[in-house]
Design a protein around this nucleic acid. Structure first.
Lengths: 153, 153
DNA sequence: CTAGAAGCTAGAGTCGGGTCTAGCTCAAGT
DNA sequence: ACTTGAGCTAGACCCGACTCTAGCTTCTAG
């Protein structure tokens, strides 16, 4: 049930460098045990924690915040309220991120739609549609390109 | 309708430093015009673009990617397909992020729930509930704290 | 017995995305 | 006339989170 650093790296998706780095940063609940020859040995628990830990990271929790949390865990029972508070704070943070991304998403969809329309119209009549205000100018004057519609940024 | 850098900073939420930095990085569609004395002047258009730009940034588009996109815009009409592709790529990226955050969120909710339960139970009978497996040991041996349940990390 | 793979430590380097400084110019208000 | 405030440039600096290097040890397979 003991795992070497290479195995943990393979299983967790983190590099061995990063595992050592995380350890230096105090991100493990229980100090990583060593074999008599100095090599680190990890348990399945560590792997489980790493899975959570990378989720926390990828959802924007900073290393100091994670350390803060795991320090509470290390102190043992009695500070559940504080841990809960940290978790709730991050939960809110994640919710806010989702909300923001959703707004961005509607903007993206909007823009994509505009471009799709444009392209579809351009396709419909190989050249730029003469009924489009730009077309006359575009034909009259190759040099002077029409000022781009702001929504085509 | 002309805006100074300070005004744009105030309106966009970016610092004047950042505005200059973005300009150096080529993130503006049209090269920022200057007054005869060298001061930058921005138009409302720039403000609109900055709003989009910060949305792109905050949703994880890198500065090089944004530059790539705006370069297509600068080249003028004719490359709509490419622009569309960049937009679609980012749209997918945003969708993926939302998905990942949602997964994280369910994990967070789960953990929060576990802690809420714990705390509620602890509250119900001031000391740790004697019906809980840890309790006997905790009473029998103050020194030896129970190994924490992995889900309390 | 030896080569190669895998570990170890301390510390340096990298990268992205800003952020700040020094030293200067300009314009307005008192 | 002078201070103050906003701008300008070039370039240095910072921070977070890795990532890699050098130099050494230790295990394992042939």
């Amino acid at each position: 049930m003991d795992l070497g650093i290479g195995e943990v790296a393979a299983l967790s998706g983190l590099s061995v460098h990063t595992l050592r780095f995380y350890e230096r940063e105090g991100l493990f609940a229980n100090p990583v045990r060593r074999l008599s020859n100095g090599r680190r040995i990890y348990q399945e628990e560590d792997l489980e924690w790493l899975a959570i830990c990378t989720k926390l990271r990828s959802s924007g929790m900073s290393l100091p915040e994670i350390r803060q949390y795991i320090e509470l865990v290390r102190q043992g029972p009695g500070n559940e309220r504080e841990r809960l508070e940290v978790l709730r704070r991050h939960q809110n943070h994640v919710e806010a991120q989702i909300q923001e991304l959703r707004e961005t998403l509607t903007v993206m969809r909007h823009k994509v739609e505009i471009y799709e329309d444009r392209i579809a119209r351009g396709e419909a009549d190989q050249l730029w549609n003469p009924s489009h205000p730009d077309a006359a100018r575009a034909v009259a004057d190759e040099e002077c390109r029409p000022p781009e519609d702001a929504c085509l940024r």
